[in-house]
Amino acid sequence: MSVENRLEELGITLPEAAAPVASYMPVVVEGGFAYVSGQLPFIDGKLVTGRCGDDVDIDGGMEAARACGLMILAQLKAAGVLEKVTRVVKLGAFVNSTGDFTDQPKVANGASDLMQDVFGEKGRHSRAAVGVPALPLGAAVEVDAVIAVSD
C-alpha cells in the first residue's frame, strides 16, 4: 500500500509544506537518508505556541507534536521522497517547557505514534525528547527527523 493510500485510510490530509523561516533547507537527501529540519506545529494554518507545564497541557503538547509529524511528512512529499521511505530512523523532539515539566517523552509520542500509524513497523524509531526554555516563534514543540529512503 502506498503512503498516500495509508494517509487516506487514516483520514489524514497533509498540510502544505512550510517554507523555511531562516537560511536552511527543509529536507536534504544524501546517502540514502532524508534529513528533515525541525518542523513547527501548525493546526488549521495557525502556529501552536506556548509552554508545556504552563499554558499547554500534555494532550495539547502531544497534538502539537503530531502536527510537527504531519509537517515532516509534508516536507518529505514536497521533496519527492514520501513514497521512498524505508524506515523512520530517528525523531528529535524539542518541547518548550517549564523547568519542572518532565513529561517531554509523553509529548513526543504525538509525533512517534503518527509515524507508527502511517508506516507500521518501519515507522518505529529511535528518539530524543528534550525540554527547552524557548523555541522559534514561540512554538510549543519542534520535531526533526532522519528518514531512510530508497533510490
Rank of each mutant, 00 (worst) to 15 (best):
S112A: 14
M71S: 12
A145R: 05
D103G: 15
G99N: 09
M115H: 03
G69M: 02
G120V: 06
L73D: 10
A78E: 09
V130E: 00
K84M: 10
V107Q: 06
A145N: 09
V143P: 06
A140W: 01
L135R: 10
L70Q: 05
K106D: 05
G92W: 04
S126Q: 03
G110R: 14
D113W: 02
L135M: 04
L70T: 04
C68I: 02
R127T: 03
V118W: 00
A129I: 02
S126A: 07
P136A: 13
D103A: 15
E121Q: 15
Q75C: 12
T102E: 04
S97G: 09
V81W: 04
T86E: 10
Q75D: 15
K90Y: 01
S97C: 11
L137V: 05
V95Q: 12
A65S: 15
K77W: 01
G120P: 12
L137R: 13
N96D: 01
G99H: 06
K106I: 01
A134Q: 02
I147L: 08
A65H: 13
P136W: 00
L82V: 12
A78P: 12
D113M: 09
L91S: 12
A140R: 06
R87M: 08
D103L: 15
N96E: 00
P105H: 06
F94G: 13
A140F: 03
R66F: 01
I147Y: 05
Q104H: 12
V95I: 15
N96P: 03
V132D: 00
G92H: 15
G110D: 08
F101N: 14
R66N: 06
G80F: 04
V141S: 11
D100V: 09
K90P: 02
A111F: 04
V81H: 08
A78M: 06
V132Q: 02
F101C: 14
F119R: 10
K122R: 11
K77P: 08
K77F: 01
F101E: 05
F101Q: 13
P133N: 02
G92L: 09
A65Q: 13
A128G: 12
C68G: 04
R124I: 03
L135F: 01
F119G: 09
A78C: 11
A111P: 12
R124A: 07
T98E: 01
Q104A: 11
L91A: 12
E83Y: 09
L137P: 12
S112D: 07
G80S: 08
V130D: 00
D100W: 07
P136L: 07
E142W: 02
G131E: 00
S97F: 02
G120N: 14
A140K: 08
F101W: 05
G69R: 03
F101L: 13
E83I: 07
L73I: 04
V132N: 02
L76P: 14
A79V: 04
K84Q: 13
A93H: 13
V81L: 05
L91T: 11
K84D: 10
T86A: 13
A139P: 12
A93S: 15
R66W: 01
R87C: 08
L82K: 11
F119Y: 07
N109M: 13
L137D: 14
A79T: 04
G110A: 15
A108Q: 11
A111V: 04
E83Q: 14
A139Q: 08
G123Y: 00
A67F: 03
L70S: 07
L76S: 14
L76G: 14
C68L: 02
R124E: 00
L91E: 05
T102Y: 05
P105M: 05
